[in-house]
């Protein structure tokens, strides 16, 4: 790893200012960035750690009932809020392993937008809003394909707001070596319909499966999915699973996520 200067500001303003430098990069929990820097696939003159900023920590409930999670809140902390949004807490509790969850942050996960990451599915299915110091980005606009997001250079996520569905479930088929999702599906039932978001499957990253949403909006049960087929076009094909296998898994995982949501 090339050397850099590590800054640990404790206000959002100081972090934003330090990140104006084009050779500076944000550091969340480091669970993705540090391995990437070791491989010299990423490099920065300055790393600006966000984990010493109290304003980026913790979970609260907004006036509209949405769950607001500070960007530097760890997966382990989110996993503890089962009473507030059980499916989201369960998702956080299945990311990687305990040591990864003790460091990795929600902001880092969303900013990274790994095509096999878990949080993007929750954000898209919950119609979450991603907040930066300057603006509010709908999840629908935030994810822009594999490892790409709507964030500008140096722009940081400060908070994520999740509307809480009536019922929800997330089920992932874990890739056993990495523990990322080979396929993961988040199903969320709101008063005005069902949203289904799929991670791990598409070359374009997380996406909504609209046919399943329509079927589940009329009948919220795994049975409603029986007649659906999903095209594997543009799906990921690698040594862990072919595109067709992933397409099959999407349907199976969606059914299981519904079963979780109703149980």
């Amino acid at each position: 790893m090339y050397d850099f200067e590590l800054l640990r500001p404790n206000t959002i303003e100081a972090a934003t200012k330090a990140l104006l430098d084009e050779d500076a990069q944000a550091l969340g929990g480091g669970q993705t960035l540090i391995p990437t820097m070791k491989q010299r696939l990423a490099q920065a003159d300055t790393l600006v750690s966000l984990t010493s900023i109290p304003a980026l920590q913790g979970v609260c409930i907004g006036d509209d009932g949405a769950v607001c999670i500070g960007a530097a809140t760890t997966h382990a902390q989110v996993a503890k809020m089962a009473g507030v949004y059980p499916a989201l807490a369960a998702l956080a509790g299945q990311i990687g392993d305990p040591a990864v969850r003790n460091r990795g942050t929600i902001g880092g996960s969303l900013a990274n937008n790994d095509p096999s990451a878990c949080y993007p599915a929750a954000a898209l299915a919950s119609d979450a809003a991603i907040l930066t110091p300057e603006r509010r980005i709908d999840a629908a606009d935030f994810f822009q394909g594999m490892f790409a997001t709507d964030l500008e250079e140096g722009e940081i996520i400060i908070e994520v707001q999740f509307p809480v569905p009536l019922r929800a479930g997330y089920v992932k088929f874990a890739q056993p070596a990495s523990r990322f999702a080979l396929v993961g599906v988040f199903v969320a039932q709101f008063l005005d319909g069902v949203r289904v978001a799929v991670t791990g499957a598409s070359e374009d990253g997380v996406f909504r499966w609209s046919a399943a949403e329509a079927a589940l909006s009329s009948e919220f049960s795994a049975k409603a999915l029986y007649d659906l087929t999903l095209s594997s076009e543009d799906f990921i094909s690698d040594l862990h699973g072919s595109a067709d296998y992933r397409a099959h898994l999407v349907k199976v995982m969606t059914g299981r996520a519904v079963t979780h949501a109703v149980s």
Binding site: L6, R8, G30, I34, P35, S49, A99, V100, R103
Partner: peptide, 12 residues
């Protein structure tokens, strides 16, 4: 808290 010490900087 359990952490992977190969994936955390000493300064942190």
């Amino acid at each position: 808290m359990a952490v992977k010490s190969c994936t955390m900087f000493a300064c942190e």
